[in-house]
């Protein structure tokens, strides 16, 4: 079994990046939950799993999607596996949203507020990850490490 201390350290380092300090699906700050997203079957071959950090409330909506779409983990309450941490490093909120919110602005839709009720969040999360209404797979080619350094400058 991989050393939890080391894995958690890698997670905490990721959580320091500015884009990961806001929930991927609402404006809530300092999210401590994570959603591991299975790449849609029509994404480019060899596409690896990606993960985003989300808040407790939004993680509830992710759980309704089913594990064939996303799998929810807690940074503090769960132990992590190597592939799960790698998915977070491979993804991160900037990349996940470059993929799943690529067409959000042009759609005219707004993200839920951090005070939104459960059904409002669930509708948005389903539109974003299940129905893929704002999706553009081009984002999969983004190197998560380069967005991280960009974050650092901003």
């Amino acid at each position: 079994m991989a050393d939890q201390k080391v894995l958690k350290k890698r997670l905490k380092a990721l959580m320091q990046q500015p884009s990961n300090q806001v929930c991927s699906d609402c404006p809530e700050k300092r999210p401590t939950w994570a959603s591991l997203i299975v790449p849609p079957s029509d994404s480019p071959p060899g596409t690896e799993k990606i993960g985003s950090f989300c808040c407790l409330e939004c993680s509830g909506s992710h759980r309704r999607l089913g594990v064939h779409i996303s799998f929810v983990r807690s940074v503090n309450l769960d132990s992590w596996k190597e592939w799960e941490v790698r998915a977070m490093e491979n993804g991160g909120n900037a990349k996940v949203n470059a993929i799943f919110e690529a067409r959000l602005a042009q759609s005219g839709r707004k993200k839920p507020t951090n005070l939104a009720d459960g059904p409002t969040r669930e509708r948005y999360v389903r539109d974003k990850y299940e129905r893929r209404k704002f999706y553009d797979p081009a984002g999969f080619s983004i190197d998560a490490r380069s967005t991280a350094s960009h974050d650092g400058q901003g």
Binding site: W33, R64, L77
Partner: peptide, 8 residues
């Protein structure tokens, strides 16, 4: 039935 956040 609706979605709930995880119980901590």
């Amino acid at each position: 039935v609706r979605s709930f956040p995880p119980t901590d």
